[in-house]
Amino acid sequence: MPDTPASPASSNASPARDGRLQALKTWLAGLPATYGLDIASLAPASSDASFRRYFRLTATSPQGSLIVMDAPPPQEDCRPFVHADQVFGAAGLTVPGVLEADVAQGFLLLGDLGNQTYLSVLDAQTAPRLYGAASEALVKLQLASQPGVFPEYDRALLLRELMLYPDWYISRHKGITLTEKERQVLNDGFDRILANVLAQPQVYVHRDWHSRNLMVLDEPRLPGVLDFQDAVYGPMTYDLVSILRDAYIRWDEEQVLDWCIRHWEHARAAGLPVPADFSDFYRDFEWMGIQRHLKVLGIFARLNYRDGKAAYLNDMPLVAHYVHVALRRYDELAPLCRLFEKIEGISADHRYTF
């Protein structure tokens, strides 16, 4: 999941983390002197929703700095990040680049794409250019797609993600115990959603293609891309949903529709296997969004209750709004919509207006 603002290392220090920090410094000291690493300058760059953390240090690189990832085994595995960095770079995307790796210890030395995220600069003036560049980069990535490179985003994984919603959001966050009938409604809705998303064309999926993981660069024009270690091979609309219905910034529905049409036209012109009719593409986009946002509600609840990261609770209302908007449009999902409204406390007299 997305990066969160960094806090001083001392604020959440533990003996284990302090021991890893010393091991990290020892590893850096043993790297070639040609990097010109100033280990004394090591400072937190960002934290993550996972166990990973990132540091920045001064170096004799073109940027004047490099990034170090600390991904402690066995909770984290560096190999998917290294692999995705290579695949995404070969597809023409701007990625950090892995300069040095100690997979056994969970340490990576990376290029530095700066600290200016899309989210930090997005407004009505910058959005058309930035979203246009993100669309172009996404098309590049999807054009490079081939099976067997990344794990499949199969039914088992998609359903496991959906189950985070009842397990962590409904039960833990809302304190609601579903009846047998309500659980059947939920399962039937999940089956319908999964049938749609699994029928979509399959491409490389970043899985967190949103405003906190895309970086604004001076050159090239396309965004720098971060946080791709969970990449899979799956539904074509997933990453587009991630950015156009972003959990961290909201745009008018008409604007989202316009950007979605522009992306569909770009993808079709590039030869990607998008549906010939935009209405079919948009339906896929919305049904994919329901899967993603139900999952995200579960993840945000889990981050709070299991990991003590309460800031994500502030993003839940927007994510729930996205779910309700999409559910209300499709008769096939009406039972699931009514259940969702019951869980959210949305009465017939106080429904959202779209």
Rank of each mutant, 00 (worst) to 15 (best):
W287F: 01
C260R: 05
D70F: 11
P62Y: 13
F150R: 02
L108C: 06
I346H: 00
F81K: 00
L93K: 01
G30A: 15
G36T: 11
F285N: 05
Y35K: 03
D208F: 05
K25T: 12
H324R: 07
G114S: 13
K309G: 04
Q116F: 14
R172H: 05
A134S: 14
P80E: 03
P80T: 06
Q75Y: 10
M69K: 06
M163C: 00
M236Q: 03
H350W: 03
V87C: 04
W168N: 00
E182M: 07
V325L: 13
Y54T: 12
F190G: 01
A156T: 08
M215K: 15
L186Q: 01
L294I: 15
G308Q: 13
F340Y: 10
L42F: 09
L21T: 15
V203N: 00
Q86C: 06
V139S: 03
E341P: 02
R52N: 14
D239Y: 01
A133M: 06
N115M: 14
D315F: 09
K342W: 07
A127M: 14
A40M: 09
R221H: 04
M288N: 05
Y248T: 06
D18S: 13
I243E: 04
V225C: 07
E76F: 07
A348K: 10
Y248Q: 10
N314E: 14
R250W: 04
G36K: 12
Y322G: 02
V197G: 06
E265T: 10
L162E: 00
D38Q: 11
R172N: 00
V82Q: 08
I346Y: 01
I39Q: 05
D280E: 14
L109T: 11
L24M: 14
V232M: 00
L198V: 09
G289D: 05
H206A: 07
S145Q: 02
Q142K: 06
A144I: 02
A43D: 13
V232L: 10
R338G: 04
Y322C: 02
Y131R: 09
P74I: 08
A231F: 09
T126W: 12
